[in-house]
């Protein structure tokens, strides 16, 4: 589970977009009886379009304001999404049936297909995003936009469109992650919040704005959690990643792969 940010927009509603994605897929599979893959596609596209609309209507208005305004705005939006979900789908916990039912046996290790689907899905998503940002015209335009909006605009990049696109991709990725995660965490309205907090820890650990950093950060956070749960006394499982994060931030504030220089006056 990753949050990637090539823009400098920090989205606290990411977890709730993830939750929305999972719910849309659930609705498509259970209520309308669609195929899993079709539901996956529908969910990603719906939430992606929703993200673009969100940008066009709400978030564009705060461009240029301090990062803090965006953070608070997305926190507010996240709360609204949660309420929307609880009113629409109720606060029960749902399960999403998946085609990954089987189990692989590699030696002594039993691997459920569900977990493999998550790992493979994550790898594909990350690879695709990495390639997209570094090797396509639009991806590079997005990087340029995030570095300096005005300069990007002068270079003929349609900044507004790029921003909507970034939000669409970001929301779509969140939805995909939500669907991948759904069989493990089950779907309920608060699934996003818990995941988003850990994801932020991962993103910060890796350094914001670095996709490989986010991947490594996510793996590190996951491993720490796992080992802390297995070896340390109870209660450390949930806090260990944060303790590591605090130490990490105190020692190397910009994260593992982040770059940070001081702002000019």
């Amino acid at each position: 589970m990753l949050i990637y940010k090539a823009t400098e927009l920090v989205n606290f509603a990411q977890g709730d977009l993830l939750m929305l994605g999972a719910f849309v897929a659930f609705m498509a599979v259970i209520w309308w009886g669609l195929d899993y893959w079709l539901a996956f596609l529908i969910s990603v596209v719906t939430v992606g379009v929703f993200g673009a609309l969100l940008d066009a209507t709400v978030l564009r208005k705060v461009i240029g304001q301090p990062q803090f305004a965006v953070v608070m705005l997305t926190i507010g939006l996240g709360a609204m999404f949660r309420t929307f979900a609880s009113v629409t789908w109720g606060s029960e916990i749902y399960t999403l049936p998946t085609p990954f039912g089987g189990v692989w046996k590699v030696g002594d290790v039993t691997l459920s297909h569900q977990y493999i689907s998550i790992v493979v899905g994550t790898l594909i998503l990350c690879g695709a995003l990495y390639a997209f940002f570094n090797h396509t015209r639009i991806g590079i335009a997005m990087q340029a936009t995030s570095q300096n909006q005005l300069a990007a605009y002068y270079m003929g990049i349609p900044v507004k469109l790029i921003f909507s696109l970034i939000w669409a991709i970001s929301a779509g990725v969140a939805a995909a992650a939500g669907i991948l995660l759904a069989p493990v965490t089950l779907i309920d309205i608060n699934m996003g919040l818990a995941v988003a907090l850990k994801a932020f820890a991962a993103a910060v650990l890796g350094g914001f704005g670095s996709i490989p950093g986010a991947l490594v950060g996510g793996i590190v956070i996951g491993l720490i959690e796992l080992y802390a749960g297995a070896t340390l006394p109870e209660g450390f499982k949930d806090t260990a990643p944060y303790i590591v994060l605090l130490i990490m931030l105190a020692v190397r504030p910009q994260g593992l792969f982040g770059t940070m220089a001081r702002k000019k006056v």
Binding site: V58, K61, V62, Q65, A69, M72, L73, I75, G76, L77, G78, A79, M80, R82, T83, F84, S86, V87, S91, I189
Partner: peptide, 25 residues
Amino acid sequence: NFLKKPGVEAGIFGLILVLVILLEP
């Protein structure tokens, strides 16, 4: 009935937060 649903309060807070940031920073 809408106001009686669980979690609506948080949504109203969120809505107000969004409106304040957009309209009256």
